[in-house]
Design a protein around this nucleic acid. Structure first.
Lengths: 308, 308
DNA sequence: CTGTTAGCGCTTTCAC
DNA sequence: GTGAAAGCGCTAACAG
């Protein structure tokens, strides 16, 4: 019994002969390991929780979150574990603590956490929590390289002769927004270009309004960079309505490279957000109990289409 | 110990007094049930598998599949179980049998199954498998009401004076395509209108090509109905490029009501596909071990925007 | 390296 | 209605 267990496990010590013998017997009898029993014996947990920070439960319907969940569920499948999806109310992150205590949660993927939320992760949970977004001393972070992505976009805008570049940001509480913001400030400063910031929330509607606002506040703007393709598309829509020529009068660039980015008129210049690979990396780390570096950044690559 | 178990379970027989006493003690000691132990004892499974039929593993990256997975993971979370995501190669559906055998899979949600795939579900799995798409004698189906959705769209097109309506379908192997097709044939026949069918695959690219093909094969077409918003958007793009006026010359309608549908020029008329509610219904049935009717159809509601 | 022995935390007989 | 005892299928600890 124990021998069998050892033989089947890659890290158990068993001679090659028994290993083979056991493997043969196993397939002979149609043996299938029972993850529940294993989880009980090793108290290792039977699922990994995807926990999404947000102000309303609505975040659970976000397509971006859906992609994270699906990618996690896909790598989880190969380890015979499951994934559950939870909303973490940012005004009361206590729920996170409960999940880290839960005996059957083997790992937690924190999506869009805030500093306060990260602070509630107990030290004892080290190695069982990973973040997509910012991390902390005990939570390793896996994220898209927002700063470089933003810098690349701005660089491209500058190289193509734009000088008065406005930016539509994401929600202020989102750490990734802040990183992009810093990159923007650094770039505009270096170029001796005036900073023009409008807060956004990643939605098309807000992007639309933001663009209108930009037009009235800074009529001589010659480029708009929106954090999030949906906002960029909304902005594009607003400009078209106002009779502004894109990219003739104003260039537009987004962030994410959503499927629809290629369908707009003109097709949207943007930079990729490889969320599936990011998620896979985070989930793999958790499931294989690897110790991850504090920060793993996945590159965002610029895709120049016709709005710039 | 046993008493406690009985008291905590809603269906256990215990007097109200002990039930209260146990509940008090439980919260006092911060007791948390261990799903793995329960799963082992009841051999009830520790996760539910979302199994997606398709020809390549690429289906796992489909945003539609992601939404199904996320919705499942969300209801699963409340029952303390997880979700895993699997690709079911349609050319070799044997994997499905393996999953139904697996001791730790408590339920299976079959996405886009085909008849052959459904045939591999053993009778013994009745009650542990639900389908989003077509079902079978032993697999209850949860789906969007494709037929009525399609009929509504066509009705709307007819009422607004369109007579030569072309349809861009989905992949032929997808049963939902066939249902929509039937509705289309019925409607065109009733209206004494010529059927004009072009196969599609739900992508924007294919929608683009399909529209071009429609233009050359049936130049007098006055409406295009695409199964899937992405295809509709692709078609819209093609028409614009060809200088066709939408909706002046040709009306366009899609199916799904994706977020992008509102962003096109003009905004796309479409009909909803409430996949989250559908999924929630299927998952709930599985997790609560309810017996579902053979077919549960969720309504698709027409959203008239400006392409018709 | 391999066999034996205890549990992991719950539910389920089975007596009382 | 309630307690005692026997597992569910595995791995960890301990001898050999």
């Amino acid at each position: 019994m124990a021998t069998a267990s050892r033989a089947l496990s890659p890290r158990g010590s068993a001679s090659d002969s028994t290993r083979l013998r056991v493997a043969a017997a196993a397939s002979e009898l149609g043996y299938t390991p029972n993850p529940a029993a294993r989880a009980l014996a090793t108290r290792t947990g039977t699922r990994i929780a995807v926990v999404v920070g947000g102000h309303t439960a609505h975040v659970l319907n976000d397509p971006y979150v859906a992609r994270v969940t699906a990618a996690t569920a896909s790598v989880a499948a190969s380890r015979e574990v499951g994934v559950s999806l939870h909303w973490l109310p940012l005004h009361d992150p206590a729920e996170l603590g409960r999940l880290t205590e839960s005996r059957d949660v083997g790992g937690i993927i924190l999506v869009n956490p805030t500093e306060p939320a990260l602070a509630t992760v107990p030290r004892s949970a080290r190695g069982r929590v990973a973040a997509i977004g910012i991390g902390s001393r005990i939570v390793p972070s896996f994220d898209v390289d927002n700063a470089t992505g933003t810098t690349n976009v701005l660089e491209h805008l500058l190289v193509t002769g734009r000088r008065r570049i406005a930016m539509i940001t994401g929600p202020a509480w989102l750490p990734c927004t802040r990183r992009a913001l810093t990159a923007y400030q650094r770039a505009t400063e270096a170029a001796g270009t005036p900073p023009r910031l409008i807060p956004g929330d990643f939605t098309a509607t807000r992007g639309h309004h933001a663009a209108t606002e930009i037009l009235t506040r800074w009529p001589d703007t010659d480029a708009i960079f929106a954090l999030g393709d949906l906002s960029a598309l909304g902005a594009l829509d607003a400009l078209r309505t106002s009779g502004v020529n894109v990219p003739g009068d104003i260039a537009i660039a987004g962030f994410d490279d959503l499927p629809y980015a290629t369908l707009s008129h003109p097709p949207l210049t943007t930079t990729t957000n490889p969320i599936e690979s990011i998620t896979t990396a985070a989930a793999t780390t958790l499931l294989d109990r690897q110790t991850a570096p504090p920060l793993t950044l996945h590159p965002s690559t610029l895709i120049v289409r016709a709005t710039t």
